[in-house]
Every structure is written in C-alpha cells, then in structure tokens.
C-alpha cells in the first residue's frame, strides 16, 4: 500500500478531500476553456476579411469586455474559495497534542535510522527502515539528516518533510486504519535515492505496546555452535564496525541497528524481501543489488557466510 489515494490517517484524508475538490473544479475549468477555444477557433464569428482589420465594432467590443471581465472575476472567486479551503486544511494539519509518542528518524545514504524516544535511555528502542505506530494515536516524528538532504514521505499517512543537515523538522500523523504502508525518500540524495524505502506498520495499540516492549529487550544469545560461530564471524569480520546488535559488544551506528533484524520485512531499505536466500545474496555482494551502497562485500568463506546468515536469522 503506497498511495495518496488510500488515506489511512485523518491528515492524509483531509488532503485527499482537498485534492478531489481541486480536481473536480480544475477539470470543469479546463474543459470549459478548452471547449470555448475550440468553438471560437472554428466558428468564425468575426466579420468578413474585407472589414477594417484594426477596429472591432463598439457593441461587439463592449460585449467582449463584459465577458472577459466576468471571466476574470470568476477566476478570482474560485481562487478565493480555494484559498479558504486550503487554509482550513492547513489548520487541521497543524493541530497536534502537546505530548505524544515521539519517534526520531535520521536519514542516511541510503537508509532510515529509527529511535523511539523514552525518558529512560535504556528503554529507547532502535530499529531501521520499518516504523511501527499505534492505530488511533497521534505520533510525532523528529526528522534529521546525517549526511545530505532526504525527504520522509508516506503518502497514506501525511505529506512529506525534508530532513536537512543542521535542522530538525517535525511531522505528525495519526494512523486510523491498521496496515502496512510503504514510504520512500522523496528528495534526491545520491546514487541509491531510488532504493531508500521504509514501511509504516500501523497496528492496534496493544500489539504495538507489546512490540515496543520486546524491542527494548536484547535478543536471546545464541547457544547452538553454528550460531555462536556466526556471531563470532559477525564480531570479527567487520560487520560490527558498522552495525549494532543489542546485548552484544556490537554498538556501531554507521549502518542499521540489527538487534531485531529478523522482525523487519525487508533488507536494505525496502530493496529485498527479508528471506534467507535474499540475505545471503545481499551479504555476498551488496553492490550488485544497490550499486554504490556503503556496505562492502566482505570475503566470507561459504561456511562463515552460512553461519553468519543463520545467526542473523535468529535476531527476532
């Protein structure tokens, strides 16, 4: 689900309403003017060719003047109505509660870092490229950019906001229909601007609360020998230079937090479905899927790769 035409929040619904009104009025105006132009171009109302080229008879002139003035007046009127409607939608969009669940989003080339704010730092939940929100509750987003300008846009929820280095932007919406909604970076941000998607998962508050509570807990440490081997590979081969996994010594923030990696539906900011085969393919050569991506292809032996993938698959 990735469309302005299926609003899933009061905010997106208000704008969609405005759109359908504008579309209707605009279409009528376009049709009217176009039809008039075709009609006058073919009708040949004017006098004969031999008539005076420079002057139109006064009565015709007066009639034309009246019609043109009326048309300009009508234009002004339509614009005035539109302006009032637009400002009323604008006011509605600007309304938000004093306090709300706040989600920090940081745009990176080319993925989304997500942090759920909590007064208790240990309860902050970090994830990437997939944002869970409770249905029926207004959520605030604080948007920042780590490198270049990005733009956060989930059309089913609300309009976009640019993430600009040196600035913090905010965005509010209240999902009112449960579902999974796709969003994508809307400001050109370099080579992989095309593959910088994210998902909004709107779920009932109870389910959301459970997800959030689980999020602050680290995954269970591996016990199986293959998995332990996979974890060692992760820690020693370079993965941990960029990625973090809760409850382990991997705490880097260069790449996406992988604590609950398997709980997400996609790999590489919406580029691939999160399956074992795709994950293997991705780790083997990220640039084959996302040319220019910052993640390097590390020279894993087949056994290492297999263990690593098995380990990552357990991070639920």
């Amino acid at each position: 689900m990735h469309s302005f035409f299926d609003p899933a929040s009061p905010q997106a619904r208000a704008v969609a309403g405005l759109w359908w009104w504008m579309f209707g009025v605009g279409f009528v105006i376009w049709l009217g003017v176009a039809a008039l132009a075709v009609y006058v171009a073919n009708a040949g109302h004017g006098q004969r060719e031999s008539d005076d080229l420079m002057h139109v008879p006064p009565e015709t002139r007066r009639r034309i003047e009246r019609i043109v003035s009326a048309s300009v007046f009508a234009t002004v009127l339509v614009l005035a109505v539109f302006l009032v409607y637009d400002f009323s939608v604008g006011r509605l969009l600007a309304q938000h509660p004093q306090r709300a669940l706040t989600i920090d989003v940081v745009g990176h080339q080319w993925w989304w870092e997500v942090q759920y704010e909590d007064p208790n730092p240990s309860k902050r939940v970090g994830t990437a490229n997939e944002i869970h929100v409770p249905v029926g509750e207004t959520v605030q987003f604080k948007l920042r950019a780590a490198d270049v300008i990005h733009s956060f846009w989930a059309p089913n929820m609300n309009g976009k906001r640019d993430l600009i280095p040196g600035y913090v932007s905010t965005l509010w919406f209240k999902a009112d229909t449960a579902g999974v909604y796709r969003g994508q970076c809307a400001e050109f941000c370099g080579l992989q601007h095309a593959q910088m998607a994210f998902y909004i998962v709107a779920e009932p508050p109870v389910k959301f609360a459970a997800w959030l509570a689980a999020g602050s807990a680290p995954p269970e440490p591996p016990t199986d020998s293959t998995l332990l081997y996979g974890q060692r590979v992760f820690m020693s081969s370079g993965c941990a230079v960029c990625h973090a996994i809760g409850g382990t010594e991997a705490k880097a923030t260069v790449g996406p937090d992988l604590t609950h990696f398997k709980g997400r539906s996609s790999i590489a900011a919406g580029s691939l479905a999160n399956t074992r085969a795709n994950l293997t393919r991705w780790i083997q050569n990220p640039s084959a899927i996302k040319p220019g991506v910052r993640m390097p292809a590390l020279p894993f032996k087949p056994a290492e790769l297999n263990a690593l993938v098995s380990y990552l698959e357990t991070l639920k």
Binding site: V15, W30, L79, F82, R161, A186, E187, F188
Partner: peptide
Amino acid sequence: LGFLFTFINGGITGVMLASVAFDKQAHDT
C-alpha cells in the same frame, strides 16, 4: 490551440501545488 489545452492543464495543477497541504504530498513526485 495546443498551447491553450496543454498549458491550462499545467496552470491548474500549478494552482493546486500552491496549496501547502497538497504540495507536501505531490512535491518531488
């Protein structure tokens, strides 16, 4: 005449994009 048909269409969507609320949806798309 082609100018009138085509340009008026672009002009009307231009007025739509003047709306901040709508522009935030349509901008950069």
